[in-house]
Design a protein around this nucleic acid. Structure first.
Length: 269
DNA sequence: AAACAGTTCAACCGCGTCTGG
DNA sequence: GCCAGACGCGGTTGAACTGTT
C-alpha cells in the first residue's frame, strides 16, 4: 500500500506550546530544505505536529526577521490608519509592517488598539473635525515617514501586479541569530550576517556601496547583488534590538540575485 | 499570601481559495 | 469541469502572566 507523506493517515498530532527542541528541529529542517510542502515537513523533520501547525510556528515565531517587543507609536498609527482603510485584512496590514506578523497585529489590535480606536471614534464625534488640511497633513506625514501606501485601493492594477511580482518593497530582514555558530556571509546559497559584522564600520561601506577593499564574504555578497540593491544606511544604523541580532535593510526593487531570492517570509535559494 | 479579574499572545479551528491531476 | 489536497486568512480559544483587592 504505502501513502505519500501528505496522504498518511492522521496520527495523533501534538498540540499546544512548542518546545525549544521542536523549534530547533523545524529551524534545522527549513535551513536545510527551505520551504516546500508543509504537510511533509513534520514527517521529514521528525515532528509530531501537523503541517499547518509547523507553518504557523514558522510564520509567526521562527521566520527570519521578525521583530519582537513593543509596537512603536509609528507602527500603532500605521495599524490604525490601515485598519480604517482595509478593515480586518491583517495579512495586508502586516505587509506594511516589516517584521510584524498578521497574528501579532491582530492580537495587538484586539488587546489594545481596538479600544483606542473606539475611544478616538468617540472623540471624533464629539469634536467633529472639519479641518481637512490637518487630516491631509497627518496623512502626508505618515506616508513620508513610513513609506506606507494609503491609497492601496486606488493604485492601478498594473501597479498592484508589479508589487505582487516583487512582493513588498518595504524593508526586508536578514536572519542571523538562530543559524549555526560561525555562520556568516554566503553559504549554500543562503545569506546571513551576524550582529558583530553589522557593528563593523566598514561593513556598511562594503555591503552598501561596494567600495571596500577586503575580500571578505561580505564583499562577495556585495558584488553579487549590489546592482539590484541599494542599502539604506539609516536603517543599517539602527541600534540592534536586545532580543535578536537581525539586521534590517531595504531593497529598492526587491532582491533578485544569482542563486537566491529573499522575501518577507524567508530566503530561498 | 491568596484569590480573583483582566490582559496578552501563541496556537488552534474552520472556511475560502488556489492548484495540479 | 471536477475533485482532493495544500495553503492562507480571520476568528476564537485558553494557558500564562500581571495587576488588584
Amino acid at each position: 500500500m504505502g501513502f505519500k507523506p501528505s496522504q498518511k493517515p492522521t496520527k495523533k498530532h501534538k498540540k499546544g506550546l512548542w518546545s525549544p527542541e521542536e523549534d530547533q528541529r523545524l529551524k534545522d529542517y527549513i535551513i536545510q530544505h527551505g520551504i516546500g510542502c508543509w504537510s511533509s515537513v513534520p514527517l521529514n523533520a521528525g515532528l509530531q505536529r501537523n503541517g499547518k501547525s509547523c507553518r504557523l510556528r514558522w510564520i509567526n515565531y521562527l521566520r527570519p526577521g521578525l521583530k519582537r517587543g513593543m509596537f512603536s507609536s509609528q507602527e500603532e498609527e500605521m495599524i490604525l490608519t490601515l485598519h480604517q482603510t482595509l478593515g480586518n485584512k491583517w495579512s495586508l496590514i502586516a505587509k506594511h509592517l516589516p517584521g510584524r506578523t498578521d497574528n501579532e497585529i491582530k492580537n495587538y489590535w484586539h488587546s489594545y488598539l481596538k479600544k483606542r480606536s473606539e475611544k478616538s471614534e468617540d472623540n471624533k464625534l464629539a469634536i467633529n473635525i472639519s479641518n481637512t488640511e490637518e487630516i491631509d497633513s497627518f496623512m502626508n506625514q505618515t506616508t513620508k515617514t513610513s513609506k506606507i501606501e494609503l491609497d492601496f485601493h486606488e493604485r492601478t492594477e498594473a501597479e498592484q501586479v508589479q508589487e505582487q511580482e516583487h512582493e513588498s518593497i518595504l524593508p526586508r530582514l536578514v536572519f542571523a541569530d538562530w543559524l549555526p555558530n560561525n555562520y556568516s556571509g554566503m553559504q549554500n546559497n543562503s545569506l546571513c550576517f551576524t550582529a558583530a559584522e553589522k557593528q563593523q564600520g566598514d561593513f556598511m561601506v562594503d555591503f552598501g556601496y561596494n567600495e571596500g577593499g577586503s575580500s571578505s564574504s561580505i564583499d562577495k555578497f556585495s558584488q553579487e547583488i549590489v546592482g539590484d540593491v541599494v542599502m539604506q544606511k539609516s536603517m543599517l544604523d539602527l541600534p540592534l534590538g536586545s532580543s535578536n541580532n537581525f539586521m534590517d535593510f531595504s531593497a529598492v526593487d526587491g532582491v533578485y540575485s544569482s542563486g537566491f531570492f529573499m522575501s518577507n517570509s524567508g530566503i530561498y535559494s
